[in-house]
Computed example of a mutant assay.
Amino acid sequence: MNYSVRRLTRDDVDAYRAIRLEALTNHPEAFASSAEDFVLRSIPDLEGLLEKLVFLGAVLPGGELAGIMAYDRGQKREAHRGWLLQVYVKPAMRSTGCAKALLDAVIAHAQAEVLQLHLSVASHNEPALRLYQRAGFVIYGTDPRFQRVNGRFVDEHLMVRFFDKAPGKTEND
């Protein structure tokens, strides 16, 4: 499938709202936010979020979002760190290179600002773990029972990629 990767703006708020709600509804165990809380957020609030964070989207020729990833830079003493957030790719776009293209774009943006990029991912999400590990991220910890969704505990792996070291190297290597 054909798509392009670009930064989202406040003009993309409706498309962002639709894909984020899909992600939260269909994969509640993958996110700390819930669909029930998300639908309560106002359009101006979501426009503000799109301006505050760096949101990248995989956009299909018709303008529909096929995937999103957000990046946030730390502040003050954490200004050397960035965070990968709100990762979601529609099922039809999985295994097409879409997630890798989005991740590559986030990494390129982050490398110009920070020394390391962090993320958290559900420990059972093997496809995401493989994607992140191929991109040079390493697990540096696991948060057991990070959340409870539909009566089931979900552990989260904490991962990091250092830009000032070779991919896959940790502080102790």
Results as ranks from 00 to 15, higher is better:
L131D: 08
R134T: 05
L103K: 07
A135W: 02
Q116D: 03
R130S: 09
Q116T: 01
F146K: 08
A122E: 13
Q111N: 03
I139F: 10
R145Q: 15
E126Y: 04
H124Y: 15
L103V: 03
T96A: 09
A92H: 07
E113N: 05
I107N: 06
V114E: 11
A105M: 00
D104L: 02
V121R: 04
P144I: 10
L129D: 14
G97Q: 02
A110Q: 08
M93N: 08
N125H: 15
V121G: 04
Y132G: 11
K100A: 00
I139M: 14
L119Q: 15
F146L: 07
K100E: 01
D143F: 12
A110H: 08
F146H: 13
E113S: 07
P127Q: 09
C98N: 00
V106C: 05
A112T: 14
K100P: 00
Y140M: 09
R134F: 05
A128H: 12
F146E: 10
A110K: 08
L131N: 13
D104Q: 02
V106I: 09
T142W: 04
H118W: 09
K100V: 00
C98Q: 00
V106R: 04
S120N: 13
S123H: 04
H118N: 10
F137M: 08
L117D: 01
K90F: 03
I139S: 15
A105N: 01
Y140S: 10
Q116C: 02
D143W: 13
R145K: 15
P144K: 14
A108F: 02
N125M: 12
V114M: 11
L131C: 10
C98A: 01
T142S: 08
A108C: 02
L102K: 06
Q116H: 04
A110E: 08
S123N: 03
P127E: 10
E126W: 02
L119R: 14
T142V: 15
T142L: 07
Q147H: 10
D143P: 02
H118G: 02
A112Y: 06
G141C: 08
H124Q: 14
T142R: 13
T96W: 07
V138T: 10
S95G: 07
L102M: 03
F137H: 06
R94Q: 15
R94I: 07
A112P: 08
A99R: 09
G97M: 01
I107C: 07
A101I: 01
Q147M: 15
S95D: 12
S95A: 13
G97A: 02
Q116V: 00
